[in-house]
């Protein structure tokens, strides 16, 4: 290793390693807690000292904590909300990007404003609404995954801004040419823009997914039935009911929750890097 290498490349690795340590230590702690059979705050350290699968077993065997059921619920909510959110946002983004209409600017502004209002603050009104909805249509009431998903779909247009930004960078000549060839607006949207916008759809999908999987404030109010809970509210309940003893089970559940997300992130990595900003810069 020459001095020159250190000056030009080596220091970059030093910085990178510092960041890696910063990023990884808390994760190691969770791993260590998950495999530590004692499972208390006091007995857990960064470096795993003991190894046991007892917490994972309890996740799958304790009927009071139907982890597989929670996982299923979470996947359903995440998938439904993500798909609806990305699709609705993409459609609206198309309108904002390609059409010039009255109220376009103010519409975009209003969207931003509404998105900044935390839905949680309207929780009492939401609760009353879902209660009423559940009396009329029990399948959509409290303690149903469908009703909870619907509430989260209130943020259906959350990704409009990001997707619109990306659409803006796709040359209009492309769709104009298609229109000249006799394609309808719908064909342009579904056949030309959506395929080209795959990176941003992947990114916004992930953003939506991460947002939904971590939501527990509303879930803890809407989902009280053990079998209707999502992972977030279920795991939160585990740690909240006994912080002293349940760290291990909580950590095991946390690992199982995070694993699929991490894998998804790794798989979509190249999209993430490209999708967020590629558009705006090329412009």
């Amino acid at each position: 290793m020459t001095i020159r290498w250190w000056r030009e490349v080596g220091w970059r690795h030093v910085g990178g390693l510092v960041a890696v340590i910063f990023a990884v230590v808390p994760v190691l702690y969770v791993v260590s807690a998950a495999f530590n059979p004692l499972g208390t705050v006091v007995s857990t350290d960064v470096v795993p000292t003991q190894f046991s699968l007892v917490h994972f077993r309890s996740l799958f065997e304790d009927p009071a904590r139907p982890f597989p059921r929670w996982l299923l619920n979470t996947v359903v909510v995440c998938a439904a909300v993500t798909v609806v959110q990305v699709f609705s946002s993409a459609m609206a983004a198309y309108a904002f990007s390609r059409f010039r209409f009255r109220g376009r600017r103010s519409g975009l502004l209003t969207l931003l404003l509404i998105q900044m209002f935390p839905q949680f603050l309207a929780v009492i009104a939401l609760f009353t609404m879902v209660t009423e909805l559940g009396e009329a249509l029990p399948a959509l009431g409290l303690n149903t995954i469908a009703g909870y998903s619907l509430v989260l779909m209130g943020s259906a247009l959350a990704q409009v801004w990001l997707i619109k930004g990306y659409f803006d960078t796709i040359p209009r000549q492309l769709d104009e040419a298609a229109v000249v060839d006799g394609a309808s607006q719908a064909t342009v949207f579904f056949r030309i823009l959506l395929p080209l916008a795959r990176p941003i759809l992947a990114v916004t999908g992930l953003l939506a997914f991460v947002g939904v999987i971590g939501e527990f404030l509303l879930a803890s109010i809407f989902l009280t039935d053990t079998d209707s809970k999502t992972l977030a509210v279920g795991l939160y309940g585990i740690i909240e009911s006994d912080r002293s003893n349940n760290l291990g089970v909580f950590a095991a559940g946390a690992l199982m929750t995070a694993l699929p997300v991490v894998l998804l992130f790794q798989y979509l990595q190249r999209y993430i890097v490209g999708g967020l900003t590629a558009g705006s810069v090329k412009d």
Partner: peptide
């Protein structure tokens, strides 16, 4: 189809939610 599936959603009413329950 997605929209149709969402229809009942709509059922969840607006403004005066505070009272009906």
């Amino acid at each position: 189809i997605a929209l149709t599936a969402l229809l009942p959603t709509a059922a969840c009413s607006g403004g005066d939610g505070g009272k009906g329950g």
